[in-house]
């Protein structure tokens, strides 16, 4: 018999290393030959979109086109450390460092422009599309290209650094503020449980994720789809069979990942509630998007069949056993 059920999962998740651990990101911004701007930052791209996000944040802070920005990353001989691409921390933590470095860069250029333009002060100077000009008298203007030529022997390169604020939990009382910021999400699924085979099929899903501000909505939705698929596999298929620390099923024929036929179309909903300490309000979502899906599926299985499963994955054998035990206990 096929039974349908609906389930909801919600989660909140603290991003960054947390718990008082030093969480430092650095970025450097340099005026390049020809007036382009280089951002040197150790944000490692693993497909999550770090390079895209850092360029977008830089373009916003520098007030110039992304095509005039050269991003250099993943080379420790050329840049300072920005920590790991882990803990959902690059967009928030390193994004902040990039923003601060760009703001410091603008300040430095304003000081130079003041001298070059013979001004009394940097007040009212505007940086826009590779030019610096005086807002009240735009004829007073100098381009990044001209500045780069004048200062070619004295390279203009500035640093921006961001250290996340977290408070270690007290060992005795557990009190503290271990993470900042948190992200929030909710997922709802409709499943069909076949009580003759123990097979669970996903029919429908909606997934809402708080991102603070979506730096790149397409990348956010890609992460949400990816997180959903990973968690779907974790919940229904993926069984790491360890024996004395060795994985027994280390083949894709034995360790099952979801395929395109197991995945379904998810209605992804981006919730924007800008975080005040974040670069333009943006928070990371890499890990959080994997969290509420499993609970939603388990709750839906319970709603459909009346059976609660407490360990993963919910293989057909495991679910059949639980269904039989539930029937037997009802019979008694």
């Amino acid at each position: 018999m096929k039974k349908r059920g609906v389930g909801l999962g919600v989660s909140f998740y603290g991003t960054g290393y947390g718990n008082g651990f030093p969480d430092v990101s650095n970025a450097e911004v340099q005026l390049l030959e020809g007036g382009k701007v280089g951002i040197f930052v150790g944000a490692t791209e693993v497909g999550q979109g770090a390079k895209t996000a850092m360029i977008q944040i830089g373009a916003e802070a520098l007030n110039m086109d992304h095509k005039d920005i050269v991003l250099v990353s993943e080379d420790t001989s050329q840049m300072m450390d920005s920590g790991t691409a882990a803990a959902t921390r690059q967009t928030y933590n390193t994004g902040n460092a990039v923003k601060i470095a760009c703001e410091n860069f603008n300040k430095r250029l304003f000081d130079l422009a003041k001298v070059e333009l013979g001004l009394n002060s940097t007040a009212g100077l505007v940086a826009q599309d590779g030019d610096i000009y005086l807002g009240i008298f735009p004829q007073k203007r100098i381009s990044y290209k001209d500045l780069s030529e004048k200062y070619k022997d004295d390279i203009i390169r500035v640093v921006g650094s961001f250290t996340a604020q977290t408070v270690k939990m007290d060992d005795e009382t557990g009190q503290g503020a271990p993470y900042w910021p948190y992200t929030f999400n909710a997922c709802m699924v409709l499943v069909e449980v076949d009580t003759n085979t123990g097979r669970v099929e996903l029919l429908k899903a909606a997934f809402a994720q708080d991102v603070g501000r979506a730096v790149n909505p397409s990348l956010v939705k890609g992460q949400m789809d990816g997180g959903f698929a990973m968690s779907l596999g974790y919940t229904l298929f993926e069984d790491l069979a360890l024996e004395n620390g060795v994985m027994k099923n280390r083949k894709f024929s034995k360790y099952l990942l979801p395929t395109s036929m197991d995945m379904i179309d998810v209605e992804n909903i981006i919730i924007e509630d800008p975080e005040s300490t974040a670069p333009y309000g943006a928070k990371g979502i890499g890990e959080p998007v994997t969290i509420p899906i499993g609970p939603a599926i388990l709750n839906a299985i319970y709603d459909a069949s009346g059976v609660r499963i407490f360990n993963l994955p919910v293989t057909p054998e495991k679910l059949m056993k639980a269904l039989r035990e539930s029937e037997e206990s009802e019979a008694i």
């Binding site: 497909g47 890609g222 789809d225 990816g226 959903f228 395109s260 995945m263």
Partner: peptide, 23 residues
Amino acid sequence: TREEIREGMSGNLCRCTGYNKAI
């Protein structure tokens, strides 16, 4: 159809994307 595309891609495992944007 979208379902036929899913079937056509089902021999290709992807860990990151969840396939939907490929479809």
